[in-house]
Each structure stands twice: as structure tokens, then as C-alpha cells.
Design a protein around this nucleic acid. Structure first.
Lengths: 354, 354
DNA sequence: TATAAGTATGAGAACGCTTTCAGCAACCCG
DNA sequence: CGGGTTGCTGAAAGCGTTCTCATACTTATA
């Protein structure tokens, strides 16, 4: 009690540790720990004393020490292909919110669509002891998956239509979404429909969207050959404009263009405008994704709303379930719906090309 | 050497620890540690042996244990006001890339513009032992700053024109940017210029932009009273359209509208279109920010490019400097420039309102 | 009143790593 | 050839927690 190191106030620079708390409250470290973790069996008097010290010094537990003994960090890792493109922004936001509500921290990295980089980042995250990981997309190195499995890290994937992780995989109904676009056009009388798609290779969701569109055109007995389909080189506005031009030149009597992405649709709108085609009187244009941009284009773009926020939330929620040992709720397909803005109309009586 | 626990291969479920590595390589834990950390003074033979085991079992160090003794986690925290809005996406991407290159992990959270929430998240990050933090914006609770300071966490702020953290604060030249917009319009002959701004309260950058615009109008001896300025209720497209309508109704002979944000400019374009005003022949519209949207609007929006990516990168870079004890490079103002797209033109001879 | 059962408490080991310190060669110089 | 220097190595002490176990103290039961 007369120990000179036994000062009532901890030195200002150093952080207050559990031992300090215990000493200040006049209990043992074990008891202090029990109060913090709400483990039963602490007398009210001691509990109150510890609680008071906790608040007075705003004690923050050291997660590293905790992690060391518990082998859990209450942190999960997320790797997305890109951060600068706003596509995944709602998904990231939802994941962050869901995890935060559950007391988890979120470590974020960006793979720039390079699986090797993704592996490196997964290593980094395992090093930091993540309890779970969310991977985005469908292109992962076997080594990545193996590493995760060997370290006992729970893995969830999002936006991977191939569903490599089984029950913990949540993806859009990309094919069905584009089938809905085709149906909406056919229902409005369109018979000559062009398809504009982004680069299909290495992006399964886009490939799925294309597949869904083609299949549905076939189902309706409409032309769906290579002549009616145009693939852009990338997602720049200029490329999609160029592709739209080719498509409009190539297919006579085109009254509608279905695009597998909103940016492509925006490029198409621009090109149609340039040609003096009125939208939607002369030609209908439908996108897919409902990204922020689509409501700001002129005219506002009809598109399929894909619930990226819900996707992220579900991925996080299911991950939390598994980490907590709770049973997984049944998988339900992510809903999507057609947003009727101003670029979708009945087929004109006289096709502009005729 | 005949100890039964001394198996050459670690049990499959458990992770391989430094002790395992040492045992497998036939050296002490200290030596193995020295090899991993490239501390000098290990004989080549031993170094090679350890290296081999490291690779063979793909050893990943446990950062929690490391953090415990080093008091450093090589992780930094980032709090942004919003993730779903793509505004900060380039900044986050740049921060992530910069930190990753330096071997740092990034913990992300979103305050939803609520300072109390920000405090809570800073607590969470301190708990996880971040070495540094990047806070966004200018509204922080004193408790937040105090907490960070008392725990010795290095703090950098971004997008805070009030520069509360001194040398570690990197912000845009918002006022100067809008002054440039006014200059560009004046130089093209415009004399009756309207200003459309977002809600000024609680968003210092927007307030700064407005201030810059007003000051510059005054400098040129042009009208800059409340009648020429319109503040929207929020950042929805509909609100900015409504505000643009009021402004156009109120000010006769308006030939240009300067907006403190791109979304506002987009709403203005829509409203002008609806009235049959030709852009840019009848009216010029200039935005600020150069967000992804602005290049996809029709006509493509003239705006000020604000380097959000650079801002994030600089914040991260400066933070790294301080954490590494390196001297800070001199602060240089973030560059900005006018992007001349299609909505900026000379003043029409006959103003459309006349 | 003595014993069993139960409850609150604290001592101390462990978690996986870094780092100080001491030990032990081998070497150089006088 | 001895004492000092140098360079590599391993033992061991923490880092801040959690958690098991043993201990002391209550209370209920015989």
C-alpha cells in the first residue's frame, strides 16, 4: 500500500490497463475482467467499484491481448475489386453498418480485379487475425481459398453467381434481371432488340446478364444472333458510345437496346441523341444495375434495380451467423425490379430505320 | 529429441507458430524471430533453414501477439461521413492503396455525419489498436480529439478547411475553386450570374465554396446579394431542380449559374432543359467537384475537378510520415482545375430572359 | 455443531511474439 | 599466449488479457 509505484492515477502518457483498473478498484485482475465481460459472480459492491474506475479513466480494453487468448478479434475483412468505381459503394456501406451493429470492425482492401493481389490481401488480413472474410466476385486463386480454409477463417462471397462457397454465397439474379428487361420490351411490342454488353470475360455477373437476355430473346422467338449483340471494350462512356453506333448501323429497324449495365445505357443514350433519335419515342433503352448515375441522366434511365445494399447486408449477416454458431436462415433470392423511368416506351409504329 | 510432442509436422487444424518454425528449423525462437524481422546477425545457414520452413508451411505471423509487445499494429483507421455516396470513393481508394503499399491495413467506418457515432467508432478503432487515424470533415467532438490525443494515436484529417489538426490536415481549396468558376464566367462576358448552393450548415467545404463565389462576384463588382443566391434543402436531384426553378424565375436576364456541387448542376441542367433553354447557347452552367456523374450528363458538365484521390493519398502519406518519425514534406495546396466540357459558353448576345 | 454444497475471490498460467541479456566461440592485437 | 573485442545464439522476461484452478468464506442440511 505504500509502494511508490502504487500511485492512484496512472501516468498520463501510458494507457490504462486492466491491472491499473484492478488496483484502483482494490480488486484482483480476474475480478475486474469478470466485471468487464459481465461474467456472473461478482459482488455488487466490487462490480460498482470497478465500473466507477472504468468510467472515470475511460478504460478501453486492448483487443490485441484479448485476441491473443481468445483467438478472436471481432474483426472481418472485405476485399472488393474496386473502390473508386461507385458500383460496390452501397454494398460496402451495408456491410459496414451490419458488422458495426454486431460490434465487429471492418478491414477493407481493394484487389483491382487481380486475384494475386487478392491473395496478398487475404494474407494481410489473416495476419491481422480476422474472424471472417467477405470476398467479392468469382475469380479467386485456389491458394486464397485454401489459405482461408486452413486458417479456419469463415468465408462469405458476394456477387459470385458461381457460388463457390455454397450457402455463404450471396449473388444477384443477373440472368433473371436481364430476362425481365427483355420481357418488358417484348410486352411493349418491340421485336427487334439489340443487346449492348460490357466485356464478358472475367466478369461472371455480366456474362450471366448477357446469357439471360439471349435466352429470353430465344424464348420469344426473336433474333438473338451475334449480329444483334455488341460487346464493348471497357466501361468508358466513349467505348459504349462507339459500340452503340456500330449496333445502330448494323441492325436495321432497331427499336430497343437492352444494356447489361447502366454506363453502357448512358453511352447509348448519348449516341442516339447525336443521331437525332428521340428517346423513348423512336427508341427504348434499358440499363441494368440502377447505379446513382441512372437517375441523373437525361432522360432518366429505365433500368433494373439490383439491390447491392441488400447483397452486402445479407453477406455480412450470414457471416455473422456462422461466426456465432447460429443456424443460417434459408437462402432467399435477392429481389430485383424494373425501374420505369423515361427511356422505355411502346414500340413506335414506324421504326426509325424503316 | 524423442519428445512425442516433437512431431516434424504441426497438427493440421492448429496454426503454425513461431515456436513451431523454430523447432522445425532446429533453432531457437529468438533466431527465427530475427530471420523474420531481418534483424542483423544470423548465420546464413540458419537463416536459410528458417526461411525454408517459413515458406514450406506458409507461416503467417500473428499480428495480435506482435502488437502486444511492439505496441504497434500497422493498421490505421478511417472514418468517412458516408460510403454509399460516391463522393469519397476516390479518396478511400487512394488511402487504401497508399497504406497497403506501406504494409498497413485499413479499418473503415462510416459516421453518417453524426459526431457521436464518430466518437464511438474512434473508440472501436482504438480498441483495435490503430496506430493512426484519418478523420473526414470538420465536425468532430472534442471528446474524440481528446481520446485520440490521450492514447497517442496520430491523427490526420481530410476535407476539413478549418484544419483543426494543423500540419496533418489536408483539404481542398474550395473557395479558390469557386472563385475560378466565377472568373471563367466573367471572362466569357457573363454579368448576371446566379449561385446555387447546397445546405451550408454543417458542411464547411460547401460554405467555403459559397464564400469564394460571393467574394469573387463582389471583387468583379457584380450583383452578389441574397437574390442571386439559392440554397437547396438537400442533395436530391428534385430539390436542386426546384431551387433552379426559383432562381430562374427570380433573377431576370440570368445567363449563367454557378453551382457549388455537381449534383446541383445536374438538376439545374434538367430544369433549364424543361424550360427550353439551350445549354450552353442560352445559359452556361458550371458545377464543382467533378464527380463521376458529371461526364455522363447530357450535355457533359463543365466543372471544377477537385482531386479527392490526391487528397486521400496525401492524408495517408503524411500520416505515414509522422508514424514513421520522418519529417513532414512541406504542405502544398491541392491543385484544382476547370474542366471545360459543354455547358460553359460566352454570354449570349440577347439574354434569354430579355 | 459439524459437514456438504455453493459462491465469491485471487493467483497464475497461457496466448505468440519481440527483445534484452548473458553465454560462448572465434578472432585480433599487443 | 592472454585479455579484450566482436558476432552469433538461446533463455527468459514481459506485452495485456482471459480463464482455470485452488482457496476462503457463506449458507443450507443433517
Amino acid at each position: 500500500m505504500t509502494d511508490p509505484t502504487d500511485s492512484p492515477v496512472p501516468p498520463p502518457g501510458a494507457e490504462i490497463t486492466l491491472r491499473d483498473v484492478a488496483r484502483l478498484a482494490g480488486v484482483s485482475v480476474s475480478t475486474a475482467s469478470r466485471v468487464i465481460n459481465r461474467t456472473c459472480g461478482v459482488s455488487p459492491a466490487y462490480a460498482a467499484a470497478v465500473q466507477a474506475v472504468l468510467e472515470r479513466f475511460s478504460y478501453i480494453p486492448n483487443n490485441a491481448a484479448r485476441a491473443l487468448v481468445r483467438q478472436k478479434t471481432r474483426t472481418v475483412g472485405l476485399v472488393v475489386p474496386t473502390l473508386s468505381n461507385p458500383l460496390f459503394a452501397p454494398s460496402i456501406a451495408a456491410i459496414e453498418a451490419t458488422l458495426r451493429d454486431a460490434g465487429y470492425g471492418l478491414l477493407v482492401a481493394c484487389s483491382q480485379r487481380a486475384p494475386e493481389r487478392e491473395l496478398e490481401q487475404v494474407r494481410m488480413m489473416i495476419e491481422r487475425g480476422v474472424d471472417g472474410m467477405i470476398l467479392t466476385g468469382s475469380h479467386h486463386l485456389p491458394a486464397t481459398l485454401g489459405l482461408l480454409a486452413s486458417r479456419g477463417v469463415v468465408l462469405a462471397t458476394q456477387d459470385d453467381p458461381a457460388a463457390c462457397a455454397g450457402a455463404l454465397s450471396v449473388a444477384m439474379q443477373d440472368a433473371a434481371a436481364m430476362a425481365t428487361v427483355i420481357d418488358a420490351l417484348v410486352m411493349r411490342g418491340h421485336r427487334t432488340i439489340g443487346i449492348l454488353t460490357g466485356p464478358v470475360e472475367n466478369t461472371l455477373p455480366i456474362a450471366e446478364r448477357l446469357r439471360g437476355a439471349i435466352q429470353r430473346l430465344e424464348h420469344h422467338g426473336l433474333p438473338h444472333g451475334a449480329g444483334h449483340i455488341m460487346e464493348t471494350a471497357d466501361y468508358q462512356a466513349a467505348s459504349s458510345r462507339r459500340a452503340a453506333r456500330t449496333l445502330l448501323d448494323r441492325v436495321r429497324g432497331l427499336t430497343a437496346i437492352a444494356c447489361t449495365g447502366d454506363i453502357l445505357a448512358i453511352g447509348t443514350i448519348m449516341e442516339c441523341r447525336r443521331r437525332g433519335l428521340r428517346i423513348p419515342q423512336d427508341i427504348s433503352i434499358v440499363g441494368c444495375g440502377d447505379t446513382v448515375m441512372s437517375q441523373f441522366v437525361d432522360p432518366p434511365l429505365a433500368t433494373i434495380h439490383l439491390p447491392f445494399g441488400t447483397m452486402g447486408e445479407q453477406a455480412a449477416r450470414r457471416l455473422l451467423c456462422v461466426m456465432a454458431g447460429r443456424p443460417l436462415p434459408p437462402t432467399r433470392p435477392l429481389p430485383f425490379r424494373l425501374i420505369q423511368r423515361h427511356t422505355l416506351n411502346r414500340m413506335p409504329r414506324v421504326p426509325p430505320g424503316a
